[in-house]
Structure formats: C-alpha cells, structure tokens
Design a protein around this nucleic acid. Sequence first.
DNA 1: AGTTAGCACTCGCCTTTAATGAGTGCTAAC
DNA 2: GTTAGCACTCATTAAAGGCGAGTGCTAACT
Lengths: 335, 335
Amino acid sequence: MNDRKIRILEAIIQDYIQTGSPVGSRTLSKKYDLQLSSATIRNEMSDLEELGLITQPHTSAGRIPSDKGYRLYVDTLMDRSDLAPDLDLIIVKMLQDKINNIDLLLEETARLVAMMTNYATIASTQTLTEITIKRVQLIYVDLKSVACVIVTEANVIKHHIIFPPTEVDVNLCLMLSEVLNEHLAGMTLKELQKTDVRQLVPDHETLVLQIVCAIISILQEEDSSQVFTRGTTNILDFYDFNDLQKARELLELLEQKPYLTKLLSKTSGNSVNISIGEENALEPMKECSLVTTTYKLGDCTLGTIGIIGPKRMNYAQVVTLLEHISYHITNMLSE
Amino acid sequence: MNDRKIRILEAIIQDYIQTGSPVGSRTLSKKYDLQLSSATIRNEMSDLEELGLITQPHTSAGRIPSDKGYRLYVDTLMDRSDLAPDLDLIIVKMLQDKINNIDLLLEETARLVAMMTNYATIASTQTLTEITIKRVQLIYVDLKSVACVIVTEANVIKHHIIFPPTEVDVNLCLMLSEVLNEHLAGMTLKELQKTDVRQLVPDHETLVLQIVCAIISILQEEDSSQVFTRGTTNILDFYDFNDLQKARELLELLEQKPYLTKLLSKTSGNSVNISIGEENALEPMKECSLVTTTYKLGDCTLGTIGIIGPKRMNYAQVVTLLEHISYHITNMLSE
DNA sequence: AGTTAGCACTCGCCTTTAATGAGTGCTAAC
DNA sequence: GTTAGCACTCATTAAAGGCGAGTGCTAACT
C-alpha cells in the first residue's frame, strides 16, 4: 500500500459515491490529477482488487469499492466536510421550540435530517430502564380506575391506567401518591425492582403492588421508547429497479419497531458510529450503510438518530450533519 | 341496462379483481355461465362502455371497470362475503388485552388488518375536540416545571409540561388541581374555550390561564391524534414497475400525519365508507380506493380505521373485515 | 524497473426487428 | 336477436446486432 494506491482508491470511492457507476482506469486518469496513464492505473487497480478494497461487478466493467474499501475510507481517508453555517441556524430554529416535548423534538429531527440528506432517517428515544424517576402521581379517574403517571429525570412523562381490585377515591390516590413519591423518587428501574414495596402502606398492600408493577412495566416496556422514521421512500432510490424486492424488505423492516430498536441499540460511545454493508446484522441492511449518533442529558443517553443510506452514501456530509445535530440537541436539552 | 348487462358487468368486475388483467369477451363466455357467445357479449360490452361503466386501456385489449363501474358494483351488486368464524376469534384475542391503552389498541389493529388484507392500513384516534374532560391533574415536577395531565371521557390520557412564571410547590399544584377539577370536569373543548377562568383562583390568575391554555392546546392540537400505518409496502404491489413513481408519492404521503388525518376525516356515518379512484381528493390516491370505518364509545367517535388498496381491491372481503373489526372494538370499549 | 501505448477481447446496454396472441368491430348468415 | 367469420390493432416478448466502456496482456520506451 503505497501513497499512490491510496490516492487512486480515494479517487475511485469519491467518483463512485458521486456517480454511482463503476469507475474505469481511463476515467480516473482523465478526471483526476493523478499524473498517470490509464495503463499504470490499471496495474494499481489490479493490486487494490487483490487487497480486497475494490471489486468488479463483472469482467469488463470498472471497479467499485468493497465494504473493506469503504471502511478504510471512513476510518482514515475521509475528511469532514464543513456544514454551511446557515444550516446550523436552521437546525436550531427548527428544533428549539420543540425542546419541551421529547417526542415532538424527535419527530422534527427525523424530518429535518431526512430532508437535508435525502436518506431514510430513524430517531428514537432510549428505553427508560436506566433513567431515574423524578416523580410519581396517581390520578383518580373514577371509582374503578386510576391513572398512574410518572415523570422521569429527563422530564419525559409516561402514564398507564390501572383497575384496582377494590374501589378507590380521590383522597386515597393523593395519600398513596405522597407515599410513593417519597420512597420511589430518585430510583432507576433496577433499584425499583429490588425494592420491597409491600410494607409501604400496610392497608393497601395489593394496590401498591399493582401500581409499582405498572410503573415497572412503563419503564421497561419496549413501547416506552418512541421511534420515528422519515424519508423512508428514499430507499427506493438506492436500489435499481430489478431488485425492488430488496428495497421492499427494508421498507417493511422499517415499519417494525422491534427491529428499529435493535438497529439503533448498537450505537455506543459519544461520537458518530458507522456500520457498512455486511457489518450490519440484519439481512435487508447488508446493502446499506447506517450512520448513528446519540444525544444526551448529562451522562444519560436520551435518544439515538440514525441515517440509512446506500453504501455509496455521502459519508462526509452525513457524519458532519449528525455531529452538528447531536451537538445542538444535547446543548439545548442541558439548558 | 337490462339484467344481462348487469350480469356481464358483474362478471367483468369479479374477473378483473381476481386476475388484474383486462377481460375479453371470449374469456367471459367461456369462464362464466352466461349462455352467450362472445360476439353477443361484445355487443353488450360495447353498450356498457358507452354507459361509462367499463373502459378499454387501448384498442384491442379487454375491458376494465371504470370508477363508475366500481361504484355501481359496491353500491348495488356486491354481496358481503362471510368472515371465517375463526377470524372473529382471532380478532378478539389479538385486541382484547390492548383495550386499556387506546394507542396500543390502534397499533395492533392496524397490524392485524394489514396482515389479513395485504393492503396498506391506517388507524387513527380522533382529535379530542368533542370529547369531554373527565379529570385534570397538575403534577409538581420541580420548582420551575409543572406537568399538566388530563384524562378524557374515553380514558385517554394526555399530558403537557409547562414552565410557570413564578416558582411553584407541591401544595399549590394540589390546590389548583382540586379547583380545576371542580370547574372543568365534564367540559368539552368548545365549552372550555368559552369559559372565563381568570376568576377561579384570584391569587394565581396567570398560572391558571397558562394551565388552561395548555389543556386547550392538548385537546386541539393535531398532535393529539395518533396515527398508525401498517403494511404500506403492499402499495408497491398495486402499481406496475413502470409507474413506481406513483407508488412512491403515495408512500411519501402516508408518512405525513396531516395528510393521513385529512384522508380519514371524511369518514362519516356509522357504517363503512368507500371512496374510489377519482373520488379521492388527494392526487396520489386517485389510482386507489379507500375503505374506512369508525369505532365508537357511545355516540362519540373515538377513531377511524382505513384501508388503502388498488381500485381493483377485494371490496367484499375488506368491507366485511372492517365491519367486524369495528363491531368488536366498539363492543369491547363499551364494557 | 517502472511506465506507457497498442490491441484483442469481454460483456452489459440499447435499439431494431419480427413473431405472437389476445382482443376488437363489422358484416353477413342463421 | 344471436352467432360465426374475418380483417385489423396493438401490447408484449424474444432474438439479433451494434455500441462503447473497460480490462488484461504484451511489447516498447525512458
């Protein structure tokens, strides 16, 4: 791997990302300032193919980058492109009035990212298992039903309606709210599960148990994590007409929350994550790349944003955009 | 329009719904028990075309039903097919444990319908403008924020977080909850808007005003109506490969809540509604049919279910299914 | 030894051409 | 009023041929 090979590989990847058709030696020698004849480039390309960085779709076609080639590119070659400064402004403007409602914020973010990139976008709130409870409140609905509302550390509000075995009244609800608040505020799900709540209110042991079960189910239910997808139809552009079937499978997958949650769950660390082609676990994603990032409140991950594009997506643009979005949201949330 | 024409029209529509390719006179005379030669049928078909009930995609092709033809069919010709009795059981089983959470119920319903029909399915909760408030509760979150939770007549719970101008405490929240409950419970949005709330708690006029505004915005916000779509990829089957573009437009439309709400808002009456081809207002829907129904609690419409299929959809099956689903949900909810 | 020009060969893609067959309208006979 | 027969239409499919981008290999050049 000499410097010349690197330059040629970079040119191939850039050209392929731009045009979408296999890149030939003649194109490279003419379009890029490599100072080499097409024959020399052909020799180098042959080597690059042996190294597994590029492949030929068929004999007598140009070369396209392999997964390994893309990986090398995003890891070492790619330089972050700058984001147009007015885009920063737009991002902040579009999102700042949604900052009080995390669901709306997510939805808007997904819309925005999809619009700016023309790729499919997913945004999700984290499951609440590691978030602490800030407040618990029971609301008397009628004789036979009580709404159980919890507010988490991140000001996310969730609720669940329960039907107690015996009739209830307003005062009971208030009293229990007070007791529960006192004992449960500040706990995470794990702590809550370890707590023995049966002694809290001796007269209403079963009711309290029922309520705490409801809270636990709110926190751990998959349903507590919202997921939004936007711009999914862009997927139809990734594939050629003949394998519409594949695009369809992917679209179907994006309709199902469990898969989406799984897809985004791998996002780790505090920067941008990239998963290319075969690196993706899910079958329909193996022709795609996934770029994800998270946004946080303090140390606590609140949600994830992901972009699904073709393997030949504009990584530089996408990474830059996600970095900025994540930065702005994290910033706004911490105020 | 003699009886023979009706029989021929019916045969054409049935055959086209089944096969999807234009129906010719010879096919009709052989496949259906009309006791007529193809030549006679040709003459009748020519008449049916003049009446605007069928059309030819091009000279020398068979006939396909026009929108007007389908309309006649669903209005007078179509006989309800029976639903397999075990399907009734499945419907009840799948839905009954979601009955306490209207959002989950909807999501599951959409999934179920999409699975059973292989058409795209939409389900939405109604906007809450005409529903009465059953209970209001303020939850003290921290010094600077208060969660405002309302429970509606249908046990739907909604919330909104507000940031009062001055600091608050637990007792203030409880006191205000009590007062608001006393005065607002039983009101609909319209009544609420007419009410002058400024005198309720003289010491906290602005706060109360802010809270009531929050309630109003919860009730009237478009966002308060959840919409779920399932099986949207089935749309790709409706169109041929060449006008993939149209399918795409429709898919895009189904990603945008305002359009979906608009689409379903036309559903009226208490039975099943059918809208065929050009009868649909939205451009990308003009190649489709939409079948909708509602489910209710008492007199109050709680939500809508809609199925989007090709104009040649199996109306009998879809109508029957929706009737049953609507019946079961309405039934379950009223318990 | 590295680089380049030249050449034969490959193969996907596009266009043209021809064949096929389902279907129609019209006419004349039953 | 119904039906058989016939000429005609036209989308669809398959085969054939030309085009062009691209490759690998060889031999010559620096």
